Each structure stands twice: as C-alpha cells, then as structure tokens.
Amino acid sequence: MKSAQQGASLTFQFEGSAFGLFDIGGPEAGQIEIEIDGKHIRLTEVAAKGYRFYQPDEHGEVNTINRFNAYCNNRYRGQYDIIKVKPGKHTVRIHLSYDRANKREILKANTEDIVAHPAKYDQSVLYLGRILLRGTPVYINRPMTKR
C-alpha cells in the first residue's frame, strides 16, 4: 500500500506481543504516528541492530517514527521496525504524520541529491509492504483512509 496523504491511516487488530512494519524507504519517505488500543503512544527505543525495536513508554522520547533515514538518499531500500506490546488483543492504527523530518539534517554532509532535486524530498509518503506480527491477526480494516 502507498499513501502520500498526510493524516491517512490504516487500522488492524491482532492478538500477540509485538507488531512491526516492513516498508520501503526513499527520498520521499515520511513519518508515522501510532495508536495502540485508542491511545496515541510514545516510544522508547530498546535496541537498534539493522532495525529499531521499540516499546510503548508514556515518558518515551519518540512520538513519531521517521521512515526516512541516512540510507534513503536517492535510493530505495526495504526497512522494518518492531514494537513490543503487552501480550493480548490490540487494535493498532498507523497514521502518516503531518510532521515532517528535517531530511537535510538527517543526510548531514551527503546532501548533493537533495540540493539537486528538492521536490523529490519535499514529500511525506509511506510505502507499506508488510505488517509484521508476533501473534495472530484478528481484523484488518480498509487501507489508508483519511482520519
């Protein structure tokens, strides 16, 4: 699924202890916000080993997950992040955020392509390939609707 409409969302339910997203990062990748069981969550990064592993934390430092990173400079690559939750049945809603990342700062010195093609980077898109579960899906709602 693809969405370039900020505020668009996808809702799914599962019973289990973790979920994640596998998507494609690239110059136009945006940020996402996550609601679990009707609550907008903050996250704490627990580990980073080629992917990021988060857990909900009301005092967490992250309220959006940036799908753009230093490897998204003028190329496309698969990436995934995992979020650990308490075991049980959960409803998850993923929103394409209205907030935008500072892509020039993320790229640091590697800004040749963003300077040459600023319109390509001045977007907020999610290319969702898979929803990853440690558990069982219960219900999947219609894809990417405006909230």
Rank of each mutant, 00 (worst) to 15 (best):
S9I: 00
D122Q: 02
I83K: 00
P87E: 15
E105S: 15
D113H: 01
G26W: 00
Q6F: 02
N73P: 03
N141V: 06
I140C: 09
A70P: 00
F12D: 08
N141D: 13
E112K: 06
I41A: 03
N110S: 06
I24N: 11
E35A: 02
I114S: 02
S17F: 00
G30I: 05
I94C: 02
G60E: 04
R142H: 12
G16I: 04
K108Q: 10
T11R: 10
K86T: 10
L126H: 03
C72D: 00
G16N: 02
E33M: 15
A29W: 09
Y80M: 05
Q5F: 11
G30Y: 01
V46Q: 11
L133H: 08
G135L: 07
I65Q: 11
Y139E: 15
S9P: 06
H40V: 12
V62A: 06
Y71V: 12
R104T: 14
Q5I: 13
H95Y: 15
K39P: 09
V115E: 03
D57C: 13
R100W: 10
L96Q: 03
T145R: 14
F19W: 07
P27D: 07
T136L: 15
E61T: 05
A48P: 05
I140D: 04
L10H: 01
A4R: 04
A116C: 07
Q55W: 04
F19T: 07
Q79H: 14
L132M: 06
S9W: 07
G60N: 08
N102S: 14
Y98V: 11
T111K: 00
I131G: 10
V125E: 03
L126C: 10
I140A: 12
F19H: 05
T64V: 14
R77Q: 12
F19Q: 04
P137V: 06
